[in-house]
Amino acid sequence: MRRTTAALAASATLFALLLAGCGNDEASSGSPSTTSGAPSAQGGEAQAFNGVQAGVFVVNFRGAFPKLAEGKDDAKIASILSEGCKDIKAGKSEDEVVENITKRAGGSTEPSSEEAEAIYHMAKLMC
């Protein structure tokens, strides 16, 4: 129960941070996207994703799932997000993405189904 509550709290915090950040991203990328080519826009999104979004994800993951974060460096945790986003963008089903997240987030401690679901929702918001 305690782990689920922490996951929900982290998801709520993450959602609030994303809403605050999304307004800025949409406002700054709305006009340039109509005048710039797709490759430069994708490059900018990848840089922002790697820096800001991955950092937010890592901080929230460590706060919500300290047992799952144990023994993992920031790059390993960030890869849970990046690989999850690849799965989501590839059109994989939610169940399949959650299963893959369970494998990626596991280690000495396996995530519960509720934790894996919370990680999925965190990743989906950031993709």
Rank of each mutant, 00 (worst) to 15 (best):
V56W: 09
V56E: 08
F57Y: 11
F57H: 08
F57K: 12
V59H: 03
V59K: 15
N60I: 08
F61M: 00
F61P: 00
R62I: 12
P66I: 09
P66Y: 14
K67L: 13
K67V: 05
L68E: 00
L68T: 02
L68K: 02
L68C: 08
A69V: 06
A69H: 02
E70G: 01
E70T: 07
D73H: 01
D73R: 03
D73P: 01
A75Y: 12
A75G: 15
A75D: 15
K76G: 06
K76N: 10
I77Y: 03
I77T: 08
A78D: 11
S79Q: 11
I80H: 02
I80E: 01
L81S: 01
L81R: 00
S82N: 04
S82C: 09
S82I: 09
S82G: 09
E83I: 13
E83C: 06
G84D: 05
G84C: 14
G84L: 04
G84A: 06
C85I: 03
C85V: 12
D87G: 10
D87Y: 03
I88P: 03
I88Y: 11
K89N: 15
A90F: 01
G91F: 14
G91E: 11
G91M: 11
K92C: 02
K92D: 09
K92S: 11
D95E: 11
E96A: 05
E96C: 01
V97W: 03
V98Y: 02
V98L: 08
E99F: 09
N100D: 11
I101K: 02
T102W: 14
K103C: 04
R104S: 12
R104H: 09
R104P: 11
A105D: 02
G106Y: 04
G106Q: 07
G107F: 01
